[in-house]
Design a protein around this nucleic acid. Structure first.
Lengths: 219, 219
DNA sequence: TACGCTAACCTTACAGCGTTAGTTTTTGCA
DNA sequence: TGCAAAAACTAACGCTGTAAGGTTAGCGTA
């Protein structure tokens, strides 16, 4: 076969298949040859659509980042904005745990990521935070999200896992353990996010007092 | 050369060299052949000391995790314990940014990691937190650390980077940009950690009230 | 002292990787 | 109608992790 009558490949098909394979078989086993095979094609054909494998992975990362919701900032409430942003960001990653390293190790050149970062930064500044504070807040919330997505329960505090294993020793109930793990991951994230936002409220109040004092001193 | 008079290799030498190469040239370029070459040896010889490349990387991860300080919990002050733990954890990772993915993607079977997790969990429970709260707190703080180490400034909010690039366009001053980036990373982490701990203090007070109420009701 | 086992190096080789070069056929446009 | 570009192909390069098996140094034991 040379050039087919109707194209076998296109960028979104390749990208979606790559994500599906990562979801199903893990990131490590994704190779250009395997990806091509799943698409009924030879490996070299992929290079007509993406210049390198990294570009395919970038497309996957962009796809996940697209689904993050930054609309919560629109009403000027930074607490709500931050919370919905963080939750949707984490949810997008948690839906594809095998793909998280792709997003986490991401270079800065990804469009969707920059769009998201810009929306968050703008939202925080619009709600009254100083630009430098906005950068740091967005950073620390992002840290929480990336960390939560990177190292889920299973790789975490295994002594706790052991407790559950003792209680559910037979493999037929392994799905129950998984449910527990997901719940604990979720709760840890929510505890962290809630505490962080509460702590930021105190910082915000402090900043407001600082500004007032500086304003009075200027008179 | 067959067996040499005095051994050329040992486990710690291989592990330390691997870390040095990761630090200097990045994780992606570390191969068994290159590692062997740096040690003046053939690749297959490494397999007398480590069964696979992953085991070498595990040793590197353990080495970094060894340096984390959990002694802050010893006086029963969970705030101090949490803070020193988080700071030393982040510092250990920040000292070897290229090695962070090795630690972040770590399977649960690493001894040093389990020892650290156990110390933190024990410290929190010893300071009065319920076991489930302790798990979640340790989790959320770990999230912050891993996230902060995984995605440093450069890969982050590039619009801010652009501001700095406009101000320092010539490459001779690139180290200044790096200084700024490190400072902002540091400050973001500290803001997140401080806010998180402050928020946890409120949770702690709430838990104390809950316990008191439950105790009164039992009378 | 001699023997043999094990440790610690070696060479060789395999399958699979990302990627490039060059070929063939089809399509869309001048 | 002719021709360039597009989209597939085959073949190959240099790399990877790792397995198999060879060779020698040093040690414990008869």
């Amino acid at each position: 076969m040379a050039r087919p009558r109707t194209p076998l490949l296109n960028r979104t098909l390749i990208r979606d298949t790559a994500l599906a394979m990562i979801d199903e078989h893990g990131l490590a086993t994704l190779s250009m040859r395997r990806l091509a095979q799943a698409l009924g094609v030879q490996a070299a054909s992929l290079y007509s659509h993406y210049p390198t494998k990294d570009h395919v992975l970038d497309a996957v990362a962009n796809l996940l980042t697209e689904q993050v919701d930054t609309s919560g900032f629109e009403r000027g409430d930074w607490r709500a904005g931050l919370t919905t942003w963080a939750r949707s960001y984490r949810a997008a990653l948690a839906a594809h745990p095998n793909a998280v390293p792709v997003v986490a190790s991401g270079a800065g050149r990804r469009e969707q990521f920059l769009a998201m970062a810009d929306a968050v930064h703008g939202g925080l500044v619009g709600a009254g935070w100083a630009p430098r504070d906005a950068t740091m807040i967005a950073g620390s919330v992002k840290y929480l999200v990336i960390g939560a997505a990177s190292t889920p329960f299973a790789s975490g505090f295994a002594d706790d896992v052991q407790v559950y294993l003792d209680r559910y020793p037979n493999l037929t109930q392994a799905h129950r353990l998984r449910e527990h793990a997901e719940r604990i991951d979720q709760d840890s994230f929510e505890l962290g996010l809630g505490s962080l936002v509460r702590g930021l409220e105190e910082v915000y109040a402090m900043r407001v007092r600082q500004v007032r004092r500086a304003g009075r001193r200027a008179h």
